[in-house]
């Protein structure tokens, strides 16, 4: 009953967002596409955050997903969007699975620092690769959709719809995962993992799974973002990119799956607004919003919903 209600709500939201595209100006559709692509990375961070882990290196998977798309297009000329997105996700997932053996042993700030170091090593490798344009990066071939090659506004609509589709499936699966036993163990692990281990459950196994989930989501997000931006560069692996994702995660809160998407959209809109209105003070604007969120909405934007709900519940 419960899950059906939120499922219906999510579906309604999805359909509304998809139908809105042709009526919105193109720049807004592009902004929303990038926001919803980045939201996948944020969703991955939410998965980790539920066990109390934060990665300052999630840009590693974002960058791998993006470069997987760009390099495939560059080397083979293959441009099918859906296949490329899956490739980005799988590629990042494989990397996450292998370094997960290492990362799953780490907790707290050490988890954050090791992921940061790994993403910075990828950054260094890409900067050193002059044949791929070093820090200038290179452009991504225009994607196609099962042989259909749209242009201009059509292209941005199709990318937007693809992003929404991937988002919807990711949100659904992550929602299911949160309700599974492994997902439900997140809070107990966060509180005290030894007790969980005494129940005969492998905590590092669960964390390893979460690292992979977050990695796949990061790769999918990077792949979608690369196609939407049309360009990749090593900056996608730099620590400030990771910092931006963590920023949105805190803004959104870990309470709801949908919060990642609304939070990411709100963040992109806010940044765009701040750069537009206060070109010399946009960092201050972003910083202030983050501070105010932490101080007054400690559980993120998501908690707005629960607060409203509680208030309604109290008032008859």
């Amino acid at each position: 009953m419960q899950s059906r209600a939120s499922l219906l709500g999510g579906l309604a939201l999805l359909v509304a967002a998809a139908l809105a595209a042709p009526f919105l100006p193109d720049w807004m559709v592009s902004l929303a596409t990038i926001a919803f692509a980045n939201a996948l990375v944020v969703l991955g961070l939410v998965v980790l955050w539920r066990v109390g882990l934060v990665s300052f290196g999630q840009a590693l998977y974002y960058c791998i997903g993006a470069y997987a798309v760009a390099l495939t297009g560059r080397w083979t000329g293959f441009t099918d969007a859906l296949a490329l997105v899956l490739l980005g996700g799988v590629g990042a997932g494989i990397v996450a699975a292998s370094i997960g053996f290492l990362l799953a042993r780490y907790r707290e700030i050490f988890f954050a620092m090791l992921s940061l170091a790994l993403s910075m090593i990828l950054y260094g490798v890409l900067v050193k690769t002059e044949s791929l344009g070093s820090t200038d990066g290179f452009s991504v071939a225009t994607p196609t959709f099962f042989g259909y090659a749209p242009h201009g506004a059509q292209l941005s609509h199709w990318l937007y719809w693809l992003t929404l589709g991937v988002d919807a499936i990711a949100a659904l699966l992550v929602g299911l995962y949160f309700r599974s036993v492994a997902g439900a163990l997140a809070a107990p692990i966060r509180d005290n993992e030894i007790r969980v281990e005494f129940l005969g459950i492998s905590v590092s196994g669960i964390i390893h799974t979460k690292v992979i989930i977050a990695g796949v989501l990061g790769g999918l997000g990077g792949a979608l973002a690369a196609m939407s931006i049309g360009h990749v560069d090593p900056n996608m692996a730099y620590w400030t990119t990771s910092g931006g994702f963590v920023f949105v995660t805190v803004l959104a809160g870990s309470g709801y799956v949908a919060a990642a998407f609304v939070g990411s959209l709100a963040f992109e809109a806010l940044r765009s607004f701040a750069v537009d209105v206060m070109p010399q003070l946009w960092q201050m604007t972003l910083g202030s919003v983050l501070l105010l969120t932490i101080l007054f909405l400690p559980e993120g934007l998501g908690s707005l919903v629960s607060r409203l709900r509680q208030r309604r519940a109290v008032k008859p």
Binding site: Q2, L13, V305
Partner: peptide, 19 residues
């Protein structure tokens, strides 16, 4: 939860409306 879903739709609409 249905109310939650409605609220989320509202939040989404608000974000779009802001632009």
């Amino acid at each position: 939860h249905r109310r939650t879903a409605t609220l989320w739709s509202l939040a989404g609409l608000a974000a779009v409306a802001a632009m």
